[in-house]
């Protein structure tokens, strides 16, 4: 069972600010989702390897070649705040 405390914890990890109503609502919704997914527990997975990837593809590589990326101007084009070619971010701690 997901409790309101779990929702607050996950919200903090995701940097989401939730109202009291939202917390109640999401506790209910998350529980519904998990309950639905619990259906999978009925399957016997004794001899099944855990899935690492849904597609049956392995070893996709590229060779080690460097190419120019984008310009500093292009990199910063969507930045809400910038300074001297850097991304500027709010106070961290």
């Amino acid at each position: 069972m997901i409790t309101k405390k779990d929702v607050e914890h996950v919200a903090l990890l995701a940097r989401l600010e939730l109202t009291e109503e939202e917390k109640e609502k999401y506790t209910q919704q998350l529980n519904n989702i998990l309950e639905y997914a619990d259906m999978l527990k009925k399957l016997d997975t004794e001899n099944i390897q855990p899935t690492a990837h849904p597609l049956p593809i392995n070893n996709v590589f590229r060779s080690d070649e460097a190419k120019p990326g984008v310009s500093n101007e292009a990199a910063l084009a969507n930045a809400p705040s910038k300074e001297e070619g850097y991304f500027r971010v709010p106070k961290i701690v």
């Binding site: 590229r62 080690d64 120019p68």
Partner: peptide, 25 residues
């Protein structure tokens, strides 16, 4: 390596800030 782990940007040390970047990194 010459290039980054998941994209083709150079790994060279130094360089002006945010010039060894691409949409992937």
């Amino acid at each position: 390596t010459k290039s980054k782990i998941f994209c083709t940007c150079t790994t060279e040390f130094g360089g002006d800030q945010n010039t060894h970047v691409c949409p992937v990194c």
